[in-house]
């Protein structure tokens, strides 16, 4: 993977986020590694329970109790005012400390899935954007209002000046999602995390929002971490993709490469099992045997081995393969190399 990519702005190294429960430890994220480069859209894709959302929450130190980051680093290149860069390990910060509160919303902003639940129904959307601006920047209220209206205009909110005083429940789904994007952009963050931002809205509206995100990324050179279960959205929007399964990264690489040459059996199965508008109708779809295991009954070795058609007995069920460079992408699979991860102490 040595093509031209911008500088690394966020580097997640061997991240482990575990949830101790009465019945055992749920290893929601169990050794995830990836880099987000300047100005790229990195798609994180996986089925339910793969840990994609918990990874994102870890990056913002928003993991709810009893979850905890138990190991790994989240190295963030913090660059306010474009002069000096400092490297912050978010994994080491206190979940409620001053520093993380500055970074959250200021440097790294979240576009959540459910815009209805993200705005307070008691305050106008404008006042909520103003609040965010004034929290992170030293500006007057007038100036903050000007910024808020500018952001609302930027995300294509029709008659932004009037909508400044609207409440979230007065807006339609698509407009509400635009308002939440304006809120996320309010402090010019260097990283945007979009957690299934279009799952709750209809396809014709979804297309508008995806085009908006593409445009923002082009114009501002923002780095976007895009979480979704929809392979179509990844194919259309992302530059690079991380495929996750049960808290582990199975494969990662350029979208154009991973989609045309999936190397991990899970990626292959995932791509083969979606009916596409361009595929033959009414044929039997190739499927993956079985279902996603219960979080407390994770298989030993490679988490995918019980469902994998190519699993090697005695190897895949014993050790976890490392995520290593294979041609242009990175793959964690013994079919491609034979390096295993050291077992946990």
């Amino acid at each position: 993977m040595n093509e031209d990519r911008g500088d690394v702005v966020l580097s997640v190294r061997n991240l482990k986020t575990h949830f101790p429960t009465d019945d055992g430890v749920v290893k929601a994220v169990d050794g995830v590694t990836f880099d987000l480069h300047q100005g790229e859209v990195l798609g994180v894709v996986g089925e339910s329970g793969c840990g994609k959302s918990i990874t994102m929450k870890s990056v913002m130190q928003l993991v709810g109790k009893p979850g905890r980051i138990v190991d790994g680093q989240i190295l963030f290149k913090r660059n306010r005012d474009g002069t000096n860069t400092e490297e912050v390990d978010i994994a080491k910060l206190r979940t409620n400390g001053k520093k993380i509160r500055e970074i959250r919303g200021g440097d790294i902003a979240l576009i959540p899935q459910e815009p209805m639940a993200s705005f307070s129904p008691l305050h106008s959307i404008g006042s909520q954007i103003v609040e965010a601006v004034m929290l992170h920047q030293d500006v007057s209220k007038q100036e903050a209002k000007r910024i808020a209206i500018e952001k609302l205009n930027e995300v294509g909110m029709p008659s932004a000046e009037q909508r400044f005083d609207a409440y979230s429940w007065q807006l339609s789904g698509g407009l509400r999602q635009r308002a939440i994007i304006a809120l996320a952009l309010a402090c010019n963050p260097s990283i945007l995390i979009a957690d299934e931002p279009t799952t709750a809205i209809d396809v014709t509206t979804q297309a508008q929002i995806l085009e908006l995100l593409k445009r923002l990324q082009r114009e501002h050179g923002s780095s976007i971490l895009f979480i979704t279960h929809d392979l179509g959205v990844i194919a259309q929007l992302a530059d690079h993709v991380v495929v996750m399964y049960l808290g582990r990264v199975m494969e990662q690489g350029a979208v154009s490469d991973v989609f045309t040459h999936p190397r991990h059996p899970y990626t292959r199965a995932l791509l083969a099992s979606i009916p596409s508008l361009h595929s033959e109708p009414r044929i039997e779809l190739p499927t993956v045997a079985g279902g996603i295991p219960h979080p407390l009954q994770r298989p030993n070795g490679c988490p995918f081995h019980p469902r994998c058609p190519d699993a090697i007995p005695g190897t895949c069920d014993v050790a976890m393969p490392k995520l290593l460079d294979v041609e242009q992408s990175k793959v964690a699979c013994f079919l491609h190399h034979d390096e295993a991860e050291e077992a946990d102490a």
Partner: peptide, 18 residues
């Protein structure tokens, strides 16, 4: 049909919303 994201990066085109 135009609005559905096709899971194929080689067929990337502008998604046309309404």
């Amino acid at each position: 049909m135009k609005a559905v994201p096709i899971p194929d990066p080689t067929l990337r085109n502008e998604l046309k919303g309404l």
